[in-house]
Structure formats: structure tokens, C-alpha cells
Nucleic acid binder design. Structure first.
Length: 149
DNA sequence: GCCAACGTTGGC
DNA sequence: GCCAACGTTGGC
């Protein structure tokens, strides 16, 4: 799951109550569907810093709730406000994401060096999806071989 | 700041 | 339902 550290960084997450955050602001249907239809409490998450100086995986987290309506879609003053969404028929959903551990950053450049990860969605050219499923083998490889300590 | 890739919008 | 125009993403 990608987050811009200028918005919510791994260090920000560590300071939040329960070290948990509602993953608000997703306005892409595919990414929404992943949260709404596939995520279960306890699922592993790689917390990825994007659109920053050194993009890469900054921490391990977990899904801490099932998907529920994203509150920002109803807030007229929020940049994620969506006039077409109503509480009766919400368009956008989020899950809660809870920190498991901050890790030494695994940069995008580093990730690209590993043939085992060559098919990872996030690494495909032109991929812009902020939320992508991870192959179990990829999860295993990253969390056992690339995460230090 | 550039720009390629992609998603969304809206006229027809 | 096509598709051009436009907006966004995000690495570099």
C-alpha cells in the first residue's frame, strides 16, 4: 500500500493511536475493490513510501479492520469530497492499517535488483495503482530475505 | 519540473 | 459506446 510520506509516513503511523490509520483517500475503483473485496483482518501489508526522495518499502503493517465507508467522501471541506457519494450509497471505502514494524527502507532500486520480485505489480512499468495484491511468494521473499533484523 | 502512462469525463 | 481532452500518478 502506497502512501506519500509528506501525507502519512511510517513515522507518523507510529505516533497514531493504536499505531493505526484509516487508509482514506483512495479514489480508484480497482484499489477500492482490493480493500473492499479482498482484505481481511490480519492480512500482511507492505507500507510503501511513494512520490518522495527515496521511494520504497518503509515498514510492515497489517490490515486492522474490514473495509468501511471512507469518511472523507462526505466532508465538503475535504479534498477527497465526492458529491456523488451518500451515506446510503457510499462510493469509497477504506480499511484500517496498523503498524507492525518500521524497517530499514528497502528502496525501489533495491527491489528491482531481485529477479524473484520481477513480476511484482508495483514494479511493473507504468503501474500507478496505490494498492496492489502481493503474491505470497513475494511477501515471503521480502519479509524473510530483505527485511533486516 | 518533466513527462509517460493511465484513469475518468463528457460530448456526440 | 467511442474517443479526445483532461487530470493524476509517481519515478526520475
Amino acid at each position: 500500500m502506497k502512501s506519500e510520506p509528506a501525507d502519512v509516513s511510517i513515522d507518523d503511523l507510529a505516533t497514531f493511536p493504536n499505531q493505526s490509520v484509516a487508509w482514506y483517500g483512495v479514489r480508484n475503483y480497482q484499489a477500492r475493490n482490493f480493500m473492499r473485496d479482498q482484505m481481511k483482518i490480519g492480512d500482511g501489508v507492505l507500507f510503501y513510501h511513494s512520490n518522495c526522495k527515496v521511494p520504497g518499502i518503509a515498514g510492515v503493517a497489517r490490515v486492522a479492520s474490514l473495509a468501511y465507508p471512507d469518511a472523507t467522501q462526505f466532508d465538503r471541506n475535504n479534498k477527497y469530497f465526492d458529491a456523488k457519494a451518500t451515506p446510503e450509497e457510499p462510493r469509497w471505502f477504506n480499511v484500517d492499517v496498523q503498524l507492525v514494524k518500521k524497517i530499514a527502507l528497502i528502496s525501489l532500486a533495491e527491489l528491482r535488483k531481485h529477479p524473484a520480485l520481477s513480476r511484482m505489480r508495483t514494479l511493473q512499468p507504468g503501474n500507478r495503482l496505490s494498492i496492489t495484491p502481493l503474491d505470497p511468494a513475494e511477501w515471503e521473499y521480502i519479509t524473510t530475505k530483505l527485511v533486516q533484523g
